[in-house]
Write a protein that binds this DNA or RNA. Structure first.
Lengths: 303, 303
DNA sequence: TCTCGTATTAAGTTGCCGCTTAATGATCGA
DNA sequence: TCGATCATTAAGCGGCAACTTAATACGAGA
């Protein structure tokens, strides 16, 4: 009889480049994988995986089995979720994806506390600047995202409004003065967070009268880590554009001040995307609720 | 995580009147059942089965779980069947239901041989005079039936034509003579197979010219086992109505002779009913094919 | 040529899970 | 009141499945 542990095992194999890689990701030795696979193939009297040189390839039978498995495994997982929900329990795996900066600084502490209150939870947090890639890479329940997102037809929930500010340190203002108008920016030192997927040097500004300007800036400093850029600004090296969540305390405490406060950039709201596969699980509901309570709180004090 | 062995276990429990009864049908001791159930309930943090006095009762959660399980278990079983089919293998459980007489004398030997040729097959044969009850009682793949059947909307396959004859032993004919006309039967000794569900004493005869007569007989001997009635006829005690399959050899060898050979009774064809749940399994296909080859063969020699 | 990564076979170990036995308690009917 | 059936708890056993280590073979790339 087919065992679902075998189906899980095969599913893991099917998305691994080699048996050795699968062994590593399963935390066992290669022979364990090799002989377990051989055993399953023997039981079915079918070859499931072509393992010649190069990457693993599923045979037709293997592909068929994996395909059918996914449905069954999904149903079983959903069933487990529903039973846990009926027991009023927060338990089971909770796989969260978040961007590096926001994830490390905001999501991780909340998840950590949440897990502490629910000992039967098995949380995992994957930080990635490529959320769509991470989604495809492995199973996930909740993905936290900051900013605009292509329409993914995935259920999402807004966790907090998140404005974007132009900021600089007082020491910078003292040395170089402050721009009074977007046009003045060109004469200033600017730092940006340069990621692959966004045009970080084009700032779409909206003026106090509603007029819109696209400002192309020429950064003197760039980094793909927002915290590094923030530190650079804190050190008085220039003007940067950062999210409210990132610099809110700096602004409150006067370590940074807003530049062109009458001009605004489009919001980069914080949203949670929910995997449709698991939307109805109690643990996910509870965690997203927690996020939606705790994340906005941190920003409220600032007007 | 939920284990499907647990789901099978719970499904077995759900159709048992008591834990002790379940233990017997699972071939284990009562504590094994009790503690395994307790363990599952602990894991889910839910009570699944109310066990007070009287019969077991599922709780709402238990009923929900069983309900959902059946779908998953069914899919898994179907998947196993399909994989076996792809491997071109005859294997797995094969659960056959057949009536007592025909099952014991005709189906059992064929199934026995079929299982011998396919060592990975786990056959089970349930003989029952109440096929519909047996269908409901447990899982089944193929049900053999002789005679008319209410329209069950179940896929069926005719295995053989099976006529019904009026027969008697030559010794009886020598002592009492033979009826030349249905009307003569009234003066003869008649034995019948009396089952609950059929009116065994009303013989719907069709004459050589196509005329139809319903003949009410008054048996001097009755039994619910066809073989006993046949033996009674072989011993020269009277005239009985029997299926071709049952008396074909007796007729061939002259131990019995046909009475009113120009008159016929409605056929009681031999059919296989296929459980829609498992129609596409290779082992079932193969077994029914085997039946449809071997069963008619036995009767062909007789005109 | 050497080395590294991969895959497989063989043999040995271990942990756990499911079972059994034994004993207790509860309930019901005779 | 006794006996029978059922359910449960506690304690201990055993089998087996999954894993490990060790050894071998193969190919590709430096």
């Amino acid at each position: 009889m087919i065992d679902i542990a075998d189906l899980r095992f095969l599913t893991a194999l099917s998305s691994a480049p080699s048996l050795a890689a699968a062994a590593r990701s399963l935390s066992v030795t290669p022979p364990a994988v090799s002989q377990r696979l051989a055993q399953i193939e023997d039981r079915l009297h079918l070859r499931l995986i072509e393992r010649g040189r190069g990457p693993l390839r599923l045979t037709a039978e293997g592909a068929f089995l994996i395909e059918r498995s996914s449905g069954i495994l999904g149903e079983l997982e959903t069933l487990a979720d529903e039973m846990a929900a009926r027991a009023g329990r927060i338990e089971g795996p909770l796989q969260v994806i978040a961007p590096f900066g926001f994830g490390r600084l905001r999501v991780a502490p909340i998840l950590s506390r949440f897990a502490g209150e629910n000992p039967e939870l098995s949380p995992s947090l994957v930080l990635s600047e490529d959320p769509l890639g991470a989604m495809r890479a492995g199973p996930w329940d909740v993905m936290i995202h900051v900013g605009r997102l292509p329409d993914l037809r995935i259920m999402q929930r807004k966790l907090a409004t998140n404005r974007r500010f132009l900021v600089a340190a007082p020491s910078y203002a003292a040395r170089f003065g402050l721009p009074q108008d977007p046009g003045d920016i060109a004469g200033h030192r600017v730092g940006v967070v340069r990621e692959d997927r966004a045009d970080a040097t084009l700032w779409p500004l909206t003026g106090p009268d509603g007029s819109e300007t696209s400002l192309r800036v020429h950064p003197v400093f760039a980094c793909n880590d927002g915290e590094v850029v923030r530190a650079w600004a804190l050190d008085g090296f220039g003007i940067v554009e950062r999210s409210e969540w990132s610099v809110f305390q700096d602004l409150r405490d006067g370590r940074l001040i807003r530049i062109l406060p009458d001009w605004s950039l489009p919001d980069a709201d914080i949203v949670a995307l929910l995997n449709p596969r698991a939307v109805r699980a109690a643990r996910i509901d509870a965690f997203v609720n927690r996020l939606s309570v705790e994340i906005p709180t941190a920003a409220i004090p600032l007007s």
